[in-house]
Design a protein around this nucleic acid. Structure first.
Length: 305
DNA sequence: AAGACGAAAGTGGTTGA
DNA sequence: TCAACAACTTTCGTCTT
């Protein structure tokens, strides 16, 4: 049973591409990223108990965006207590008291956090699979007591940022900052903290991941977009991309590409959607031209008018 | 007048002693 | 913990279209 979106809301094309990995649907013609309501994200990368016999999970899928994951544990009820005596009995009462305190506090916190997460990620059109991941990270962070000394909101934002990176569907710190109302550096701090403490490995973000989104925001033609990708590939071969901010490189590649394909965007326009300054674009742009022998092409275009 | 370019000074983060 | 350092930003003046 396959679900299909018929047309791209941006350009009306039916030439759509579903990237399961990222949980996004991308229009091949205009590069528009259609936000994805589908929960199906194929093979789940998380570890379930590796009973390799069964390749399927039975029953309802466990979800991390519900505060108790649909599972609950209770310390014994009154009827069980009749079997206990003396110290054990006291112990049980104490445990029950603690469970009550802890669980209500935790659950209240989680509910709040998850609704915050939902708010932010729907604002940013984050795919459901990534939101789930963020919820999972947040839960782990809480279990490890990493929230202490930090606001719940900032931990949520950090978790979400980490989840985005993890799924290679990056949002910039600026975007998350704007959506969550948390300062950029605060998000960065908690992001680094929780990924370190939880030992989450993050692949360094790749400029290519930003191209589709920026390009659709700039309403560039698909050829222009794919040409920008080509530029990026070449640039990566010469290690032009290492050490630099990925958004800046992506922006510069798009800028060059827009020049060459005759649908020029100003540096400012590109800079705005990429969240960098014109200066950065200029620097990257210069590097691209000189080190990638694109000089001639650009000059050709310029003299041709 | 707007866009592109570049210089100079400032900011926040990383690294290595 | 501190200083050096690279990347990026802000600001501003100049040149080009």
């Amino acid at each position: 049973m396959r679900q299909k979106i018929k047309r791209c809301p941006e350009c009306g094309s039916t030439n759509l591409y579903h990237d399961k990995e990222r949980g996004e649907i991308i229009c091949r013609d205009c590069g528009f990223v259609i936000d994805d309501k589908m929960v199906d994200f194929g093979q789940d990368w998380r570890d379930f108990d590796d009973d390799s016999q069964s390749d399927r999970r039975a029953g309802a899928p466990m979800t991390y965006t519900q505060f108790d994951q649909g599972l609950g544990t209770d310390i014994g009820r009154r009827s069980d207590l009749s079997m206990l005596k003396g110290k054990n009995r006291d112990k049980y009462f104490r445990l029950r008291k603690w469970q009550y305190r802890i669980s209500t506090a935790l659950e209240r916190n989680l509910k709040l956090a998850l609704s915050e997460l939902k708010r932010v990620s729907s604002f940013l059109k984050i795919p459901k699979s990534v939101e789930e991941e963020a919820a999972r990270i947040y839960r782990l962070a809480v279990q490890k007591g990493l929230v202490r000394g930090r606001s719940m909101e900032s931990v949520v934002a950090g978790s979400l940022y980490a989840a985005c990176r993890r799924h290679e569907v990056p949002r910039t710190l600026d975007e998350i900052s704007e959506a969550s109302g948390i300062e950029k550096k605060e998000i960065g701090r908690t992001y680094r903290f929780i990924t370190r403490e939880l030992d989450i490995k993050i692949l360094p973000s790749n400029p290519v991941d930003y191209i589709a989104r920026f390009s659709s925001a700039l309403k560039l033609k698909p050829e222009t977009q794919s040409y920008a990708m080509k530029i990026l590939e070449k640039a990566q071969d010469i290690e032009l991309t290492s050490g630099r901010g990925p958004t800046g490189i992506a922006a510069a590649a798009l800028y060059v590409s827009s020049l060459i394909h005759g649908e020029k965007r100003t540096q400012r326009e590109v800079a705005d959607v990429a969240g960098v300054t014109e200066v950065t674009i200029r620097n990257r742009y210069k590097e691209l031209l000189t080190k990638l022998k694109l000089d001639k092409e650009v000059k050709k275009i310029k003299s041709r008018k």
